[in-house]
Structures are given as C-alpha cells and as structure tokens.
C-alpha cells in the first residue's frame, strides 16, 4: 500500500488548545488544509472526469465527421450538434427508420436489473449471517468454496445453466425470470463474500444479548442483521445494479427480444459496416444516466460505512 499512497504532506496544523471540542468543521479543515492534498484531490477528480467529458463531446460530432475529426476540431469551427442525441433517443436510424427508440430498452433494463439486485442481496445476506454467526460443521469449507467461486469465469457456466433454464427443464430461457436467475447466481459469490465481511464485524455483544434472550436465528436475522446491515446492503446494491445494468453477455444468452436491455441495441447501433458508429457515444452516455441517479439516491446510506465492526474500539 505504501507504494501507491499519494504523498500526503504532513500537515503542520497546530492543535487548537481546546482540542477536545474540535468540531467536525474544524476537522474538515484539518483534512483539506494541506494544499497538497487539495491539489491531489482536484487532479484526481479532473483526470477521472476528463474521459467522460470527452465521450460527451464526441457524441456531439456530426456523423459525417465522426471518423475523421476530433471533437476539439469540430468545437473550434462550431460544428458540434445535439443531433446524435436526438437521433438515438427519438429515431434511431434516421427518418425512414422503424427502429424503436432507446427508451423502450431503458424499461427492459430496469425490469432486468432491479430484481437481479434484490435477489442476490437478500439470499446473500441470509447466507452471510449463517456463515458468520452460526457455527456448523463444514461452515468454513463452504464459505471458502463460495469465495473461490468468484473467479469461475461466467462464460464457462453459460451452457449448463442454459440447459437448466431451457425449454426442456424450467422453460425460463428468453423470459425475464431466466435472466434474473442467471444474474442472481453469478452475483452470489461476491454478495456472500462482501456481506459476510460486514456481518462478521457486528459486535458479538449485540448478537449475544439477543441470543441470551432466546431469539431464534430467524428473529436475529430480522431484528438485528437486517437493520444493521443496511449500509452494506446499499453499497452492494449499487454495485450489483451497475454490473447488471451494463451487462450484455448474460442478458443476450438468457434473454430474448422481449427482455433485451439497453446494452443490446447500443452494441448493435454501429450497423453492419460501422456506418453508424457515431451514434454509439451518445447512446453510451445516455445509458449512464440512470445508474448515476441510483448512485446519488443511495449515497446517503453509505454514511455508516461498510464495516460497522471496525468502529469497535
């Protein structure tokens, strides 16, 4: 870690004499009084934002200049236009087109994503609680197994799973249900792993007190684990949301025309010979909007931190 730590300049920061009453505001100053820290933060923020801004600018390049000109060239001669956004949103391929606007796929994306977030988070939390707090034979082995399963490449599991979901068995392939199940399975190892880390740090006394009172596992799960885990659940939910939202492979394999999410038309937008490649940047930009809204709205749940247990002093 030390290698990658940015050089945070030691802050002089003469301790106020009445240090014990140091307020949060004062602390904020502590953190940002270092001009180096501020500069580093600004640089990181800029470096991380510029590529996205570039994507936005590129989506404003008119189609006939997309392959030959850079956005700043087009900007310089005032050629930037919102036409591509219009085209992508309201008539994908121009006036003669019958293609549905991306809007239709936005709904599919939502329908695919939300249950695919809820299922693995709930099931993962249940298992995480069991592995962290209920001693049973094989607990460690099973947990390590689940943990290691994270690395199984998704592609290897596609065919066996499709056989199970296919018409000869569950008959869910091509339906939303099939896509949900597939996403849920692929998300479970990480979900169990992350939530286990959180749940296992809940102070023992909290759980023991309840246990002494005669609470069953079910009662502990609903009364203690769920309320205390909300911050972790919120973080995991956001990430799972993003991964599913941006997934193409699982949706393509387990879904059908009725269920394809936004990534599907975007990946096909360029056309057989790439003649519509200029529509890809605006579409990619549009597909970011909902995940960002989700991030903003769930951000406040992060306050408590992913690891409540780390606070025990």
């Amino acid at each position: 870690m030390s290698v990658t730590m940015p050089p945070q300049h030691p802050v002089e920061d003469p301790k106020p004499t009445e240090g014990k009453s140091l307020t949060k505001a004062a602390k904020a100053k502590n953190n940002l009084t270092s001009p180096w820290a501020t500069a580093a933060a600004i640089i990181i923020a800029m470096v991380w934002t510029i590529p996205t801004v570039a994507l936005f600018m590129t989506s404003l390049i008119p189609g006939d200049r997309y392959r030959t000109d850079a956005w700043w060239t087009v900007l310089a001669d005032g050629g930037l236009t919102f036409d591509n956004f219009n085209q992508v949103l309201f008539d994908s391929f121009g006036d003669n087109s019958t293609a549905p606007p991306l809007l239709e796929y936005v709904f599919n994306s939502i329908v695919v994503t939300v249950p695919s977030v809820v299922f693995p988070v709930v099931l993962g939390l249940m298992a995480a609680y069991a592995f962290a707090w209920i001693p049973f034979r094989g607990s460690n082995f099973l947990f390590v197994l689940i943990f290691a399963l994270q690395v199984v490449p998704l592609q290897l599991a596609l065919i066996p799973l499709l056989r199970l979901l296919g018409p000869e068995n569950l008959g869910l392939a091509g339906e939303f249900g099939g896509v949900w199940i597939a996403h849920t399975i692929f998300a479970l190892p990480l979900s169990v792993f992350l939530l286990h880390n959180f749940v296992s740090h809940i102070p023992r006394e909290v759980l023991e007190a309840a246990r002494v009172d005669g609470a069953s596992h079910t009662q502990m799960f609903f009364r203690i684990i769920i309320p205390l885990s909300l911050p972790a659940v919120a973080s995991l939910a956001i990430f799972q949301f993003l991964w599913v939202w941006n997934d193409l492979l699982v949706s393509a394999v387990f879904g059908s025309a009725n269920t394809y999410p936004l990534t599907y038309p975007i990946s096909n937008l360029a056309g057989d010979y790439g003649q519509y490649a200029y529509l890809v940047p605006p579409a990619a930009f549009i597909s970011m909007i909902i995940p960002l809204i989700v991030f903003f709205s769930l951000q406040r749940y992060f306050v408590r931190g992913l690891l409540a247990g780390s606070t025990k002093g």
């Binding site: 065919i159 799973l161 499709l162 056989r163 979901l165 018409p167 000869e168 394999v253 059908s256 025309a257």
Partner: peptide, 20 residues
C-alpha cells in the same frame, strides 16, 4: 422476430448447446 447480435458466434453455440 429478428434478433441481431454482436456476439452471434458465441451465442449461437451457447444457445444450441443449452437447448434453446
């Protein structure tokens, strides 16, 4: 219903072997 896919070569094999 026409479905066009960018990853057709992968998906057709997967779908065929997966029975769908």
């Amino acid at each position: 219903t026409y479905n066009g896919s960018d990853e057709f070569e992968t998906e057709i094999n997967v779908r065929v072997e997966g029975g769908n």
